[in-house]
Design a protein around this nucleic acid. Structure first.
Length: 779
RNA sequence: GCGCCAGUGGCGGAAUGGUAGACGCGCUGGUCUUAGGAACCAGUGGGCAACCGUGGGGGUUCGAGUCCCUCCUGGCGCACCA
């Protein structure tokens, strides 16, 4: 539980925390040791933006929001361990993060380099690759620019293989998230091949997954950012080409600029031309490829456009070109007759021998750029000297506190203009020095908070023995939007910390549950103005805006969002319906991993259920017999099973089923011992009501342990046995378990419905699945 | 384009290969009440019926919503990844 303190709790938070709260309460009743903490992901840009907009300070804004949201959370009456509370913007958190940064640096997992990075022009900061979606900033939606800057990186690529292979062991994670991470890591097997540049004592490295098609290579293409280009073209021409590339309207269109360069073919005695091509990515492989037009779609398109030769090296029809699939190698003296896999193997052997290439595993994932050119974040504990060299501080020099007194008015990072903070004298060298003014990506903050929760007051980042004892987190609940950001970073952190601190933990989160969004119908006026649901009234079957009487059009149900105004406020709901009804509705209609549509009917019927339970327990009537006991036992068993499998919607159905049964039988248990059982099972779902009933019926403030299941009570002897003919249900017959097939068939053949079907046909076969079903086959 | 997931009444959704539609919402009829965002009772997949029904078509099986093949539709993710 680690919300961003944006100001208010919304329904999405409520759903998330109710799910977690049910789990926590259940496990506590089971006698398990439960840690159910809450903290604040409190650094980040919205605070700076809000501070500028409202003429306040990011810290004040954040602290006020935390206070406000905490008040709202308290009203939800969640069973949280508030004494574990933490906020990343507190010195007591981020100073330990600075220690971890030093640890990572010393372990070679944090480093600084010049790199072409993603620049968000709106937020005025660098973004990690993971934070760029469709070329746009994940928060601002602004088109990301490329900038060359010196930046801090975390070496997530060091763990690329383990981050990938580890996914298989995460059996309690949704497949979908694992697939997304797999794609992001993007492992591919292939070869790196050296191409000698004709007339120069220099090479060009390329990566390929299809070294078998080397005989079909007819050109080389490099990315616009490839360093070889600067050796042949001046900066102005490069910029001109870069611009031309950017201006292509169809971004799939292939454009190439032929360079005054040729490469020697690594096997054949010939030279092939080198192009700059817009479709070659600079951040994948070597930023350079060899083109084999006959067997690659892009290369084919490119070759057609620039009249490059197309040489077939895999046997196929000319009409099939470009042919991507497997086949027999041709026109390839060393490989002729082999199929693809064998040819790849052979050619790599050959290259290794001649020194022109080798086997290579390539990953798409890049190191995590963590520098942010913003004030409101964790300062990076580094200083720079006047000669440009830098020093990562010692732990004894920590904390590097974020100065409060700054001006956000100017452009860029406020820390840059804060000289009295930035300019220091290095206490080791006595030289003039400057503090690093970049701060850490807030995803760093959230990559280890779950460890800090284990002991939030410790005077070091965490206690390794506690971590070993309690991690990984058993149940981790959140939205799918974290699939490759937070969840990948946290996995990286766990592995890095494992290696640094010699921990026994490989993965941070054992079970991951991704909850669905809450949606609501949308409403618009004819003038295309969004209208809050609360303003809409229905009159004579027509929707009107209550204030003005304007006609309202109802739109599809969409994710609740402020911009579409289709939100309901938790505090309003709590006031009108109470916490128990709110909890019931959060889990009742849809399975928790799917969308939940907010409806007035839904929340109302949840309230009705809560009232009904209360009413039920106000009366005593009827006899408690074995059948009732069995029904209650079934209820306990089902609730438990469904809580454990996150099938909370079925838990609600179990509650209805139980009370439907009891009321139908006119059995009102009141303070019978069965009521105690029922109330314990209701406690995780409707804690307030359950607690108050327990108090009034049993004069107790506490609950006993979650009831042990008595298996004997779950066994049902009397059954309705389905009887089929040719697999189609004809009727059912009342009998006891363990019936004799012979005898039951005798009575089955006496049934009218069966007789009608059988007429004078002969039974050829009887399938008796004992105690389950009987299927009769007739000719 | 590639990958993943899903398609079940009017709606949300239940069903270890074994009685499809649990449970809820909505709806219909009735009861109670000064009143009720209430409660209670009966009903509610389609069809007068025989029967027909889980996106379409094939298959495996005594038996398929569930497994296999194929197609269609929708959602999500990735997308010039060499």
């Amino acid at each position: 539980m680690f919300p961003y303190p944006s100001g208010n709790i919304h329904m999405g938070h409520v759903r998330n925390y109710v799910i977690g709260d049910i789990c926590a309460r259940y496990h506590k009743l089971k006698g398990d040791e439960v840690i159910h903490p809450m903290g604040w992901d409190a650094f980040g840009l919205p605070a700076e933006n809000a501070a500028i907009q409202f003429k306040t300070h990011p810290q004040d804004w954040t602290i006020t929001n935390i206070k406000n949201m905490k008040d709202q959370l308290l009203k939800l009456d969640l069973d949280l361990d508030w004494d574990r509370e933490l906020a990343t913007c507190n010195e007591n958190y981020y100073r330990y993060q600075q220690e971890l940064f030093i640890d990572l640096y010393n372990a070679g997992l944090a480093y600084k380099k010049d790199a072409v990075v993603n620049w968000d022009p709106v937020d005025q900061t660098v973004l990690a690759n993971e934070q760029v979606i469709d070329g746009k900033g994940w928060r601002t939606g602004a088109t990301v620019e490329k900038k060359k800057l010196s930046q801090w990186f975390f070496k997530i690529t060091h763990y690329a293989e383990e981050l990938l292979s580890g996914l298989d062991k995460l059996t309690l994670w949704p497949e979908k998230v694992k697939t997304m991470q797999k794609n992001w890591i993007g492992k591919s097997l292939g070869a790196e091949i050296k191409f000698e540049i004709a007339g120069k004592d220099n090479f060009l490295n390329i990566f390929t997954t299809r070294p078998d098609t080397i005989y079909g290579a007819t050109f080389i293409a490099v990315s616009i950012n490839h360093q070889i280009i600067s050796e042949v073209l001046d900066t102005a021409s490069i910029e001109k080409i870069r611009k031309d590339f950017e201006e292509v309207s169809d971004d799939k269109e292939k454009i190439g600029i032929k360079l005054n360069l040729r490469c020697k073919h690594p096997i054949l005695d010939k030279e092939i031309p080198v192009y700059i091509a817009n479709f070659v990515l600079d951040n994948y492989g070597e930023g350079a490829i060899f083109g084999c037009p006959a067997h690659d779609e892009r290369d084919y398109e490119f070759a057609k456009k620039y009249n490059l030769p197309i040489i077939k090296v895999i046997d196929c029809l000319d009409t099939e070109l470009p042919y991507i699939g497997d086949g027999k190698l041709i026109n390839s003296p060393l490989l002729d007759g082999l199929n693809k896999d064998k040819a790849i193997e052979e050619i790599i052997k050959f290259f290794s021998k001649t020194g022109t290439g080798h086997k290579k595993i390539n990953y798409k994932i890049r190191d995590w750029g963590v520098s942010r050119q913003r004030y409101w974040g964790c300062p990076i504990p580094v200083i720079y000297y006047e000669d440009g060299s830098y020093r990562v501080l010692d732990k004894s020099e920590l904390p590097v506190l974020l100065p409060y007194d700054i001006s956000l008015e100017g452009k860029g990072n406020a820390l840059l203009n804060k000289d009295e903070w930035r300019k220091i004298i290095c206490n080791k060298t006595n030289k003039k020095a400057y503090r690093e003014t970049d701060t850490l990506d807030t995803f760093v903050d959230s990559s280890w908070y779950y460890i800090r929760f284990l002991n939030n007051k410790l005077d070091k980042p965490f206690d390794p023995s506690k971590a070993n004892e309690l991690l990984p987190v058993d149940k981790y609940i959140g939205g799918i939007e974290h699939a490759i950001l937070h969840l990948l970073y946290s996995r990286f952190f766990m592995k890095a910390l494992r290696d640094i601190y010699n921990l026994k933990i490989d993965e941070p989160f054992k079970q991951l549950f991704t909850q669905g969004m809450i949606t609501h119908k949308t409403y618009k006026t004819n003038a295309d103005e969004w209208v809050m649901p609360i303003e809409v009234v229905s009159k004579n079957g027509k929707l009107l805006r209550s204030k003005t009487g304007e006609a309202i059009e109802e739109g599809p149900s969409e994710k609740m969002s402020k911009s579409k105004k289709n939100v309901v406020e938790p505090n309003v709901i709590l006031e009108n319906y109470g916490i128990d009804a709110t909890r019931v509705f959060m889990i009742s209609d849809s399975p928790p991993d799917r969308e939940l549509e907010w409806t007035d009917e839904g929340i109302q019927s949840s309230k009705n259920l809560v009232n009904r339970i209360e009413r039920y327990f106000s009366k005593k009537d009827g006899d408690v017999n074995l059948e009732v006991e069995k029904e209650v036992e079934k209820f306990v068993n089902n609730i438990e099973k469904n809580i454990l499998s996150f099938s909370f919607n079925k838990c609600v159905a179990d509650v209805y089923t139980l009370f439907n049964y009891l009321e139908k039988k006119n059995v009102y248990l009141y303070n019978d011992k069965l009521s105690k059982k029922i109330l314990i099972c209701l406690f995780p779902i409707v804690p307030k009501l359950s607690k108050s009933l327990n108090k009034s019926l049993f004069k107790s403030d506490d609950f006993e342990r979650w009831p042990e299941i008595n298996i004997d009570l779950l066994i049902e002897n009397k059954i309705k046995l389905p009887v089929q003919i040719h697999g189609k249900l004809i009727t059912t017959i009342d009998t006891n378990k363990g019936y004799s097939e012979k005898e039951i068939l005798k009575s089955i053949y006496e049934l009218d419905k069966i007789k009608n079907k059988m007429q004078n046909k002969k039974v050829t076969k009887v399938i008796n699945v004992q105690d389950k079903i009987i299927n009769i086959i007739i000719n």
